[in-house]
Write a protein that binds this DNA or RNA. Structure first.
Length: 254
DNA sequence: CCAGACGTTGTT
DNA sequence: GTCTGG
DNA sequence: CCAGACGTTGTT
DNA sequence: GTCTGG
């Protein structure tokens, strides 16, 4: 889950929404943010919250190289406190990853084709929901600082992962995992360095937190970008090149 | 003791 | 670095 | 996350 | 099948 997302809100706006100082590079917005790219995070410091740019895909402190960063893009909430790569980050390396929405794929087998087809869906905050921070989602994350042992003169790389949990009933129509979303209280508690047991404050995410729509397979290629990637499509519309709904129960979800 | 892994996803 | 497997 | 590459030789 | 790049 959560291997591709949208950030169409600028760093300045993100910093205002999360009441943070903007300390990030001027990263361009993207409708197709892929693992290993630079993303924004909100972290707490002694001087308050800051928006910081980080690399998506965690490199543990002890890693000999950065080649496996792309495989540590998510951490399971159920096991994060046990895993060597993550457990030591919970106490003081928590962050919030702002996203306007994220993509999830469902593999569907169409009766007239042999190969399964990956239908992308776009999840975004339900307007007015507690999980909408002026239209932006706050995903619980962890960050780490890594220095390449083969390049001791180089600067440290800050990397991050997004936490995942079992999908709620609404999201599970498409996929069995979902990001750990934070409401306003959740952001407070997750970012507060004084929080004793941050994992214990994470609550179930109600079905009304998100809305979903099917989108074009253009998003499947990480080279695609552009606002049309989140345009809703009608899966029952034959003009999308898909079979009509009466022939395809799998696609008749929404 | 040393060597080797350390993660998630989905799929079977 | 720290834990697990042998 | 998905898409696309995955290799060597010698020659230009 | 598995790894890398985006």
């Amino acid at each position: 889950m959560c291997g591709r997302f949208v950030r169409k809100t600028s760093a300045i706006e993100i910093s205002q929404i999360f009441e943070a100082t903007n300390n990030s590079l001027d990263l361009p917005v993207s409708y197709n943010v892929a693992p290993t790219s630079r993303i924004l995070s909100v972290v707490s410091t002694v001087d308050g919250r800051r928006v910081q740019d980080v690399s998506w895909g965690l490199i543990p402190r002890w890693a000999k190289d950065s080649t496996k960063a792309a495989s540590l893009i998510n951490a399971r909430l159920e096991t994060v406190s046990e895993k060597p790569s993550f457990k030591n980050l919970i106490a003081s390396n928590r962050c919030v990853l702002p996203m306007d929405g994220y993509f999830e794929w469902k593999e569907v087998l169409r009766h007239d084709e042999i190969k399964p087809f990956k239908q992308p869906f776009y999840f975004s905050p339900q307007p007015g929901s507690h999980y909408s921070h002026s239209g932006v989602l706050g995903v619980a994350g962890l960050w780490s600082s890594w220095k390449d042992p083969n390049n001791p003169e180089g600067s440290s790389v800050i990397t991050a992962v997004a936490l995942t949990r079992d999908a709620n009933a609404m999201v599970s129509q498409v996929h069995h995992r979902m990001p750990v979303l934070l409401d306003q209280q959740g952001v407070m508690s997750w970012l507060d360095l004084a929080t004793e047991e941050p994992l214990s404050h994470l609550v179930e995410i109600e079905d009304e937190a998100l809305v979903v729509c099917a989108v074009s397979t253009k998003v499947n290629s990480s080279r695609s970008s552009g606002a049309d990637l989140i345009d809703p499509i009608d899966l029952n519309d034959a003009s999308n090149g898909k079979r009509k709904a009466e022939h395809n129960d799998e696609l008749r979800l929404f």
